[in-house]
Design a protein around this nucleic acid. Structure first.
Lengths: 349, 349
DNA sequence: TTGAAAGCGCTAACAG
DNA sequence: CTGTTAGCGCTTTCAA
């Protein structure tokens, strides 16, 4: 029934011009404290809600940033998004988040929608990097002059077509292995979930490949016997613990590198339950440093992918791009360093 | 440099009026196929992106729905959001998601922002139900005439101040217990995470209270000795398995009701690793039916909270409200029934 | 210090 | 079938 309240209603109520109201509402210095008060009061009384659409259209800036993520499951996104949020609030920016569920059409439509909504910038964790389709989307944003920062190191290192922030998985794996190496571990096991469903599989496959590669370079061995695979990314680690314990002791690795923190924690829990003392009898190293709800005895040393810091860095870069403090060219690639978060699950041999 | 392309640019390029372009782009029947083609072609060539802000402002409808959730961790939200997405796409609606991270100020600001963005409807999974603050937010949406559907059964059943969709936890607990009862379980254990941090604790505390209550009504016993608590919601279940196994056999419960599926799966994995056969030696019942990445031997019978169906129902209700097919009054409370998803982890005594 | 007027990009009546 | 003409609610010069 009652139409939506606009500044005209306020203007009429207070007896001033609408432009005065507009200025007063935004605390412009040109308006007397007195009128400002009356305007504010009327606004409250009338239950006025400023129309952001009109504001953006007229002002030419939406104060909106779009965030396109692959899925909600990814433990890496949660702290990063948290970081986006707080940074956005500090900058007076609203966030609009979308999840494409690894569906590339949805991903494309979503970004299209962002552009249509006149977002001032886009943070994008793409489903794939370097494909034709992906480059095309990037170009469209570019031609629409909407700055975009890729979240996570996507695409081919040879052709950097967009700003990006992330840590190299390769380097992170290397950091983990070097850490184990520094603790004199030679014979190493791996817990992985290559058999997991969907995109998870690819993730773990890549990590495993990197591990093999880098281990070779460091003179460490990853015996095929010591690569335990599971299809259950979340709880398969427990079963892996059981499999490990069934092995004759002399065949045990001195350390197990888990392909992600889920596997790592599950493994740790399983070993504990089976009476294996960590790190005395075996060391366990995780990967991701995903946020943890355990405050108990289970504490996993892990290679941190620095989700929070990545998030902060990404948003800062985007803000610079939006504000014009940072030039669109050349493309920036912010490569953060992985970090070993030392807890109790690793010890020297 | 190049200003953004508008319909005027297209109109100029094609040599027609801008309103013709507007209609042509929306496939209005009044425009000749020929001109439509030319317009479309020019639009593509010029890389035209329709300005959704202007469209919404002018058209008076934004085709935007806001979704306010507490956090990304909640496994219940993921399938529900998926459902929102697909339903939204079918209805030509765009979704804007926000997570408040259990921060009530952020929650409030977020909803405010939704209202300002002229969303046509809001789906809200509130941090709390029935508080003064919460009622106030509800009223504001109401006075802005933005329909809102609460996701999950929030608030006090006595005073229904908003539409809501969900399943009653109480009933779900009851369904679980009745199921165990029907399998002749008398002596029952509980795996809970009351010691978890943050809001999780409250959740588990409530569930435990309901369990005790309903168990009493059904003549089942929950011995305090058989209530195992952990602070690690995700992997604590493994440790609980170890604790259980340490007990002398005659004291074992015949079934364990896990307070959520994380605990349930962890427990199952732990028991397996410790050589306990499920369900032959003990039954395990989960709660939530969270999406599972395990396709392996671990398969947990669980009380489903019907996340997908809840999601679909919620969105449908909101669409009805937006479209005017459903009246704003009286408030609708759609209470879905929990369902036992029978897998392999429960058997009769 | 405030008011008048133009316009952001698009839609939607209506007129031609 | 296409062009004309008003707005949508707000910002932003420029006058007064």
């Amino acid at each position: 029934m009652s139409k939506r309240i606009t500044i005209l209603d306020i203007a009429r109520a207070v007896g001033v011009d609408n432009s005065t109201v507009s200025l007063a509402l935004r605390d412009d210095g040109r308006i007397t404290e007195a009128t400002r008060q009356r305007v504010r009061e009327a606004a409250r009384r009338l239950n006025y809600v400023p129309n952001q659409l009109a504001r953006s259209l007229s002002g030419g800036r939406s104060r909106l940033v779009g965030v396109m993520l692959t899925d909600m499951e990814n433990r890496f996104f949660s702290p990063a998004l948290e970081e986006f949020q707080t940074a956005a609030e500090r900058n007076g920016i609203a966030l609009s988040v979308q999840f494409c569920s690894w569906n590339q059409e949805r991903e494309e439509r979503g970004i299209e929608q962002f552009c249509g909504s006149q977002v001032e910038g886009i943070i994008w964790a793409p489903t794939d990097g370097g494909s034709e389709r992906y480059e095309c989307i990037l170009r469209r944003m570019q031609s629409a002059m909407i700055p975009c920062v890729l979240f996570g190191l996507a695409g081919r290192p040879d052709r950097v077509t967009a700003h990006q922030v992330g840590v190299s998985e390769r380097e992170a794996i290397r950091a983990g292995l070097e850490y184990l190496h520094s603790l004199h571990h030679q014979r190493m096991g791996v817990a992985t979930a290559v058999s997991a469903t969907g995109m998870r599989s690819t993730l773990h496959r890549n990590r495993l490949a990197h591990m093999r590669l880098v281990a070779g370079e460091l003179g460490m061995t990853i015996d095929d016997q010591l690569v335990w695979d599971t299809e259950d990314n979340t709880y398969g680690g427990v079963e892996i613990a059981a499999r490990l314990v069934r092995m004759p002791l002399p065949q045990w690795p001195t350390a197990v590198f888990a392909s992600d923190d889920m596997l790592g924690r599950a493994l740790l829990s399983g070993l504990r339950a089976l009476g294996v003392r960590v790190p005395e009898e075996i060391s366990v190293l995780g990967f991701d440093d995903a946020p943890d709800d355990s405050t108990g005895p289970v504490s996993l040393t892990s290679v941190s992918l620095e989700a929070r810091q990545n998030g902060a860095e990404t948003f800062a870069l985007l803000m610079g791009l939006i504000g014009g403090t940072i030039e669109a060219e050349p493309r920036r690639v912010v490569k953060l360093s992985p970090r070993i978060v030392q807890r109790a699950s690793c010890a020297a041999v």
